[in-house]
Design a protein around this nucleic acid. Structure first.
Length: 674
DNA sequence: GTTCTAGAAC
DNA sequence: GTTCTAGAAC
């Protein structure tokens, strides 16, 4: 969804200037309606009144009639209204939409269609929320309410509808409404809605990968029951020659199918009547290609997991500018992935040559990632017969075939590389995907002698194969890992549960504010496990950390935050420290505590992301020497003989922070007042 | 004498 | 990661 300042018309009609807005929030409990209202009311210069059914009865739940009465009174006073109740179906919304019959107002809807899982976890974890929907009951209630959800339509009487499917969408909608002054108006229409019927999806390339039941890998080399599946690129009949020539594809599949380890290739098309599917199928059968490694599938490439086929990697028949839109599968994929894919793509490349492919790790904030489990999109460009675009073949059929073949080779090569990284990551059978995770989790819970034995064998094999060996974590080092895997069992410890991270207060904070953002990705245990494929999760962790730092900065403007990782952490499971730089804490007791946050052992999140982006892995300063370094003030760099003396100094030192920390956003301050 | 560190155990 | 505590440092 793209809502930006440019869309805010600053010169509306004279009467529009004075027209108040009624914003009807639409969303399940936990979808963030109250947060939305709070934010808008905090930052907006328009006069807003929040009409909240949960609190309208003297702080307690009230009735719809009370909400309507308050709305009417407030509108008469020229106020703008935020209707903070679920409003999930048309009937629930109707009375509020009808306010426009008795007042000169525009009716807007903000649809907070966030994953049910997220809403439920927020409900479970919120304390003292006005709706009082706490505890295990939350899941049942949220699910029941979502069943009767009806998306608002313009014809119900709305002037403008904004759909939000993830937190980025919500943020941008909050920014839009927050920055709306009394004299500005917003364009009418529907914004950000996902197309559920992408009928235009034509020929489809598809690629997917699954980790299924990887449990036996370590104990028996020959018994590779783990199934890493992926689908294969199909073809795009998008104005190129390949439509009638599955030849290239099948032959390239034949070459690659054995190189991609446990990956599988699947050709997908929307329709059962697809000519390309049947041609490819026939040809593959003739060539005796293992049907478990390569098969065809009928379905929507943007909804494979929902359609019953787990898929990690999808191939996109891109256009040469790598732009969203244009109809066909490219539009469908960009649409389903949301703006994150476009942003991530732009960061990597601006265009693509026919015959080439490029892998884009999908940010975890993308709905295609969170809902369908797609971790990578490979954009690939086939031969071009359109004279208006670069590299037109001008009917050179031979060359077209060569370019097409090259496209498949490049596509499969990219896929091969993803599979290899994935297998490295999986190490001893740690699957990243859901079904695998469940299985492994249970096994981990019952670690016994034989299980340990298996793991040990696993390490040896992987060592021989040149793989990395995991650190052997002590029993006391498992706490974060357990919380990350089962956050719902640790309701008192966690302050936020998202799909791929959990946030918790450090049990032994080393400063006034010290929280940990812990990844939920299995097998990602410390910075030493991090590779290029983890850029999305690193960015998510950074963003979530940033958000919490900003929250704390609002409460206490004098704090300064730093976000980073320990080069060699003591606790299992990659965690980002979000820590205020006062180090005012009774738990900061020794040299190691100090140096782990104030030497090169502490790796700033911004640097880690930069290094992974450029080098593929972060730099680690894990030498013990960093722990025994002399104790120096984090501001003025003066040395101190022991911890108590250092602490007395830092309590009063007002020197500015060293130059290197002031750069690249390593330190976070409250915004300076103008 | 007290304060502080650092290594072992968990 | 913390706790405990012997013994070094003051």
């Amino acid at each position: 969804m793209e809502i930006d300042d440019e869309m805010i018309k600053s010169k509306g009609e004279e009467e529009d200037k004075k027209k108040p807005i009624v914003v009807i929030l639409v969303g399940a409990p936990g979808s963030g309606k109250s947060t939305f209202c709070d934010h808008v009311m905090r930052v907006s210069t328009r006069p807003w009144v929040r009409v909240c059914q949960d609190t309208i009865g003297n702080g307690k739940a009230g009735t719809k009639a009370q909400c309507l009465a308050l709305s009417n009174t407030s509108l008469k006073q020229g106020k703008n209204i935020l209707i903070d109740r679920c409003n999930l179906d048309k009937e629930q919304r109707a009375d509020f939409v009808n306010l426009k019959n008795s007042h000169q107002v525009d009716i807007h809807a903000i649809v907070l269609d966030l994953p049910a899982k997220l809403c439920i976890s927020r409900c479970i974890n919120r304390t003292g929320h006005e709706g009082n929907l706490q505890g295990g009951r939350a899941a049942a209630v949220v699910n029941r309410m979502l069943q009767k959800k009806e998306s608002p339509k313009i014809n119900e009487g709305f002037t403008r509808i904004t759909f939000c499917y993830n937190e980025n969408d919500v943020q941008s909608a909050m920014d839009t409404y927050g920055s709306l002054s009394s004299i500005n108006t917003l364009p009418s229409g529907c914004f950000g809605e996902k197309k559920t019927d992408s009928k235009v999806q034509v020929g489809i390339m598809k690629f997917l990968k699954r980790v299924d039941a990887p449990s036996k890998l370590a104990s028996d080399k020959t018994d590779k029951t783990e199934k890493t599946d992926k689908t294969t690129p199909g073809t795009s009949n998008d104005n190129t020659t390949q439509e009638n020539h599955p030849v290239n594809e099948v032959e390239t599949v034949e070459e690659f199918v054995n190189k991609i380890g446990n990956g599988r290739l699947v050709l997908v098309d929307l329709s059962h009547g697809s000519k390309i599917l049947s041609l490819v199928k026939t040809k593959a059968a003739k060539k005796n290609i293992d049907s478990k490694k390569f098969f065809t599938f009928v379905g929507d490439i943007t909804k494979l997991q929902s359609g019953g086929l787990k898929c990690n990697v999808i191939a996109n028949a891109a256009n040469w500018r790598l732009k969203p839109g244009g109809g066909g599968v490219n539009a469908a994929i960009f649409d389903a992935a949301g703006p994150d894919l476009d942003t991530a793509t732009k960061q990597r490349a601006g265009s693509l040559t026919p015959g080439k492919a490029i892998t884009i790790p999908l940010p975890s904030t993308s709905p295609l990632f969170s809902k369908e489990g797609v971790t990578h999109v490979i954009h690939v460009l086939g031969p071009n017969m359109n004279q208006k675009r670069p590299n037109c073949l001008k009917d050179d059929y031979q060359k077209g075939c060569r370019v097409l073949k090259e496209a498949y080779v490049s596509l499969f090569g990219n896929f091969e590389s993803i599979v290899r990284n994935q297998e490295k990551l999986c190490k001893h059978f740690d699957g990243v995907l859901n079904s695998g995770v469940e299985k492994v989790r249970r096994e981990d819970d019952e670690v016994c002698g034989t299980e340990k034995n298996k793991k040990f064998k696993g390490f040896v094999e992987e060592k021989e194969m040149g793989g990395k060996v995991n650190k052997d974590w002590g029993s006391w080092a498992q706490a974060l890992y357990k919380i990350a895997m089962n956050p719902e069992k640790h309701g008192n410890d966690v302050i936020e549960i998202l799909d791929d991270v959990v946030v918790l207060n450090d049990v032994y904070p080393k400063a006034q504010k010290h929280v940990l953002v812990v990844t939920r990705v299995k097998g990602l245990e410390s910075l030493s496990d991090v590779g290029e494929e983890h850029l999305p999760i690193l960015r998510t962790m950074h963003d979530v950390g940033l958000k919490w730092a900003q929250t704390f900065l609002k409460e206490n403007e004098s704090l300064v935050f730093r976000l980073g990782y320990h080069s060699a952490p003591s606790m299992r499971q990659l965690h980002l420290h979000v820590i205020s730089q006062d180090f005012d804490s009774k738990h900061l007791k020794n040299k190691k505590h100090w140096n782990s946050f104030n030497s090169s052992f502490f790796r700033d999140s911004v640097d880690v992301i930069e290094e992974v982006r450029e080098e593929g892995k972060p730099k680690l300063n894990d030498d013990e020497k960093f722990m025994s370094m002399e104790l120096r003030c984090n501001r003025c760099r003066s040395a101190h003989p022991n911890i108590p003396r250092l602490k007395s100094h830092i309590a009063i030192c007002k020197s500015p922070f060293p130059e290197n920390l002031l750069q690249n956003g390593r330190l976070l301050h409250a915004p300076t007042k103008v």
